[in-house]
Design a binder for these strands. Structure first.
Length: 390
DNA sequence: TCTGGGGTCCTAGGACCC
DNA sequence: TCTGGGGTCCTAGGACCC
């Protein structure tokens, strides 16, 4: 029986590291990635910035107060994706089973690879060296008998870390990390655990699965039961595939003009539909999201009987959904459009394909998309151009 | 402090069907 | 007529992660 060995690989301060790769002069700066608007937040903080107490998701205004001379650089996602792909390609040389879970993280199933790469720790060192030499990027590697342990191990020793937790030390490791840093347990659940009178992972282990489920809900109870024992709680999907496609924007200043809101919905409808076409998927559900200045947030969705075939169709539905949550004159802080219940395929699952008037729109939009991708000029659907000029 | 954007998964209630 | 139970789908909201 082969002993299971999982690696979790995490790129250290990834966005900041790529920016520094491209701009060596950033090296001595207090670098953060994020927009300049007063409503921006920090998307990623360099380690230097972290020494000032700056972290991701922090409002930029607050970060500036902590360090007035910080350097804020807007994110370049395409560039980060490019470097991410390079690193993932290297990882695939070390394991036939690489499971990417975000732009800067992946699991490797390294079970039974010792003949090729040596013992886990040696393989980890070789992996770090290879990534560093070929990309200039620094990774942290966590090694464990389960994905959960590997993930928490990479977090335990970073940046530039290498941490292996042997199966016999799993429980001790979990207890050392503690409840506050248990992956998958956020603020709300932590409070709920505290409210139950539980202070440590050891105490949590004293609860039966049934009792945990009764107290914290089916899924969370089961998750806690397994997590606290170092077992995989079954939350890392075997194959991650897109189940929704969405875009949203927070306005610099609140918008109450219907024409502008509709224009934004139109352009967002085109964006999400273009991404769906690009990924060769179709969606069944259209959703919008609205946030008011007091931060109350609504989502409304609809699942039409007919298949969703065109951006214009998304737009028409989105307009209708907006009307359910918005009255003329109300200022809006954020608006978004999303496609849900996404499934593989470029054709509807069923339905009267040829009778659908949206089929023609879809074909036209597809042509426009192909043109826009092949040339430097941005080609948009005629209706979109008209509205933007008007 | 005044709160981005892109996702996944879970829960609970209601509609509808048998 | 005052009323079961199971299953599935849809909707809205929320926790959590990077």
């Amino acid at each position: 029986m082969i002993e299971p060995v999982f690696f979790h690989v995490d790129l250290d301060a990834f966005y900041a590291a790529v920016e520094t790769l491209d701009h060596p002069e950033y090296k001595d700066e207090v670098l953060v990635i994020g927009g300049k608007s007063h409503r921006s937040v920090v998307a990623a903080a360099s380690y230097k910035a972290r020494t000032y107490g700056i972290h991701s998701a922090m409002p930029m205004g607050q970060a500036l107060r902590l360090c007035p001379h910080l350097l804020a650089v807007p994110p370049r996602m395409e560039r980060y994706s490019e470097e991410s792909r390079r690193v993932m390609a290297i990882l695939s040389r070390f394991s036939p089973s690489v499971q990417q879970i975000s732009i800067d993280e992946a699991f490797l199933d390294m079970s039974g690879t010792s003949r090729l790469f040596g013992l886990p720790r040696e393989a980890g060192m070789l992996l770090k060296k290879t990534v560093k030499e070929e990309t200039g990027l620094v990774i942290s590697v966590g090694i464990g008998a389960t994905r959960l342990i590997a993930k928490m191990a990479s977090d335990y020793d970073k940046p530039d870390g290498l941490c292996r937790v042997s199966p016999s030390k799993q429980i001790a490791f979990i207890d050392a990390v503690g409840l506050k840093k248990l992956w998958g347990v956020g603020k709300v659940t932590q409070q709920a655990i505290a409210d139950a009178g539980i202070k440590t992972t050891g105490e949590l282990r004293g609860w039966s699965k049934e009792r945990l489920q009764h107290r914290f809900g089916n899924a969370m109870g089961s998750f806690l039961y397994h997590a606290v024992r170092g077992e995989d709680p079954g939350i890392f999907p075997e194959e991650s595939r897109s189940r929704s496609i969405s875009t949203e924007t927070t306005f610099n200043t609140d918008v109450s003009d219907e024409e502008i809101l509709h224009q934004v919905l139109l352009s967002m409808s085109h964006e999400v539909m273009a991404r769906a076409l690009d990924e060769k998927v179709m969606a069944r559900t259209i959703a919008i999201k609205v946030r008011y200045p007091d931060f109350t947030t609504y989502t409304v969705q609809t699942t039409p009987d007919a298949p969703i075939l065109s951006a214009n169709q998304v737009y028409e539905q989105a307009k209708g959904l907006l009307a359910q949550k918005w009255r003329a004159g109300m200022p809006i802080r954020l608006i978004g459009v999303g496609l849900h219940q996404v499934y593989d395929g470029e054709r509807p699952l069923q339905g009267e394909l040829f009778e659908d008037p949206h089929e023609k729109e879809r074909t036209l939009e597809q042509v426009a998309l192909t043109l826009s991708k092949s040339g430097k000029h941005l080609v948009k659907a005629a209706s979109l151009q008209e509205k933007q000029q008007g």
